[in-house]
Design a protein around this nucleic acid. Structure first.
Length: 368
DNA sequence: TCTGGGGTCCTAGGACCC
DNA sequence: TCTGGGGTCCTAGGACCC
């Protein structure tokens, strides 16, 4: 989807259409989630601090994100995609892979399906979309980038190399700023440059896996399959505070609150976690994490909060630094149904806590 | 200008075991 | 006296994606 969040806002408030709409976290420390194309003309893009975006475009329309609404539209779009293949893999709210392999008999050639989808989504949702078609996920994704905004781009197998060659390496999936900078040092800027680097060099520069991955990317090779539903591997909550925290009690209160929110999500989604993680980012933006493995998987808020507190004690806050971000995570998840009931955890207590907090909000009750 | 929140995957070092 | 090689598990950090 093109400028998805901003487009949904324009759909719901037609008077905003064509204006510089910027969906962004609040100042002072929020960032831009999505900028409409009108806003991009001012140099605004995702990830940019909201405060900077406001300086660049003081008359812009700044809106806080409404994720429930975007989720609703995303669901409608996924339903349309699902008509053309059982294999639909959402990447995020606004992007998905559709595997059209073997659907010709039912729906006709993939090119036709891509055209149909490209017409149907705007027709039925009022939202602009871009469609890319290619022989694998890597190429399809790059083709859709090429199609933006609002286009359809098809890359046939014999066109893959000529399509890729002129692109700068950072367009490739998995090549970010760091890797691009290291490649640049070696004189590698485009995919064509990259393709001319022997595998041995890439391996020695980026390790066996990294080198191999780059070698494949440069050739448009991607064997990964379209996976409709993947099990969550971790669940986390984190918050950046408008002002750094210095008070130790405030910090541990916040950590406990986050631990409870993580426990809520574990329970809501039916998981138990064996690993508890915490994360802290300091005034100078350095980030520390600590994690620990539990003897038994749990979704118990008090247990998770206790582990988080123990981890916090192991993490020293550098002299003179405040805490700008705190996070709590749960990993090594196991579905609750596969887990025998733990004998010694106070189930009634967990139930009662959950009820109280559903009634009065997540901050209503703490135990320690 | 001053850097979100939710994730995934990889690497490297150390502990430990045979 | 100083010492192998292979494997697994755990932890911390970092790159990357949307």
């Amino acid at each position: 989807m093109d400028a998805f969040y901003a487009s949904v806002e324009e759909l719901d408030q037609p008077e905003l259409r064509g204006k510089p709409v910027i969906v962004a976290g609040p100042e002072p420390r929020g960032v831009v989630a999505t900028a409409s194309y009108a806003a991009r003309k001012f140099g605004i893009h995702s990830g940019m601090p909201t405060s900077l975006a406001r300086r660049l475009c003081p008359h812009g329309i700044f809106l806080p994100p409404r994720f429930e609404r975007y989720e609703e539209m995303a669901q409608r779009i996924r339903t349309i995609l699902g008509e053309y293949s059982p294999l639909v893999e959402p990447i995020s709210l606004d992007e998905a892979f559709v595997d059209l392999t073997g659907t010709e008999l039912l729906h006709g050639p993939a090119e036709k399906v891509a055209e149909t989808i490209h017409k149907r989504i705007p027709g039925e949702t009022g939202l602009s979309c871009s469609v890319g078609l290619g022989p694998n996920k890597l190429i399809a994704k790059l083709a859709s980038d090429e199609a933006k905004p609002g286009g359809l781009h098809i890359v046939r197998p014999e066109e893959v190399q000529s399509f890729l060659d002129p692109l700068p390496v950072e367009k490739l999936w998995g090549v970010g700023p760091k890797t691009a900078a290291r490649l640049e040092e070696k004189g590698v800027r485009t995919v064509r440059d990259l393709r001319e680097v022997p595998l041995g060099f890439l391996r020695s520069w980026f390790g066996p896996k990294g080198g191999e991955a780059l070698w494949q990317l440069a050739r448009g090779l991607d064997e990964s399959s379209v996976v409709p539903v993947r099990e969550a591997k971790s669940i986390s909550r984190e918050v950046t505070y408008p002002e750094d925290l210095f008070d130790e009690e405030k910090i541990s209160d916040e950590l406990r609150r986050l631990a409870f929110l993580v426990a809520d999500r574990l329970q809501a989604e039916g998981f138990l976690a064996r690993t508890v993680q915490i994360k802290a980012r300091f005034s100078d933006f350095t980030t520390c994490t600590r994690q620990t493995k539990l003897p038994e998987p749990t979704d118990h808020p008090v247990l998770i909060a206790k582990e988080a507190a123990g981890l916090l004690a192991r993490l020293e806050i550098p002299q003179g630094q405040g805490v700008r971000l705190l996070g709590v995570g749960a990993a090594d998840l196991v579905p609750r149904t596969f887990q025998p009931l733990p004998l010694f955890v106070d189930l009634k207590l967990a139930e009662a806590l959950k009820e109280m907090r559903e009634k009065f909000g997540p901050e209503a009750l703490y135990l320690w």
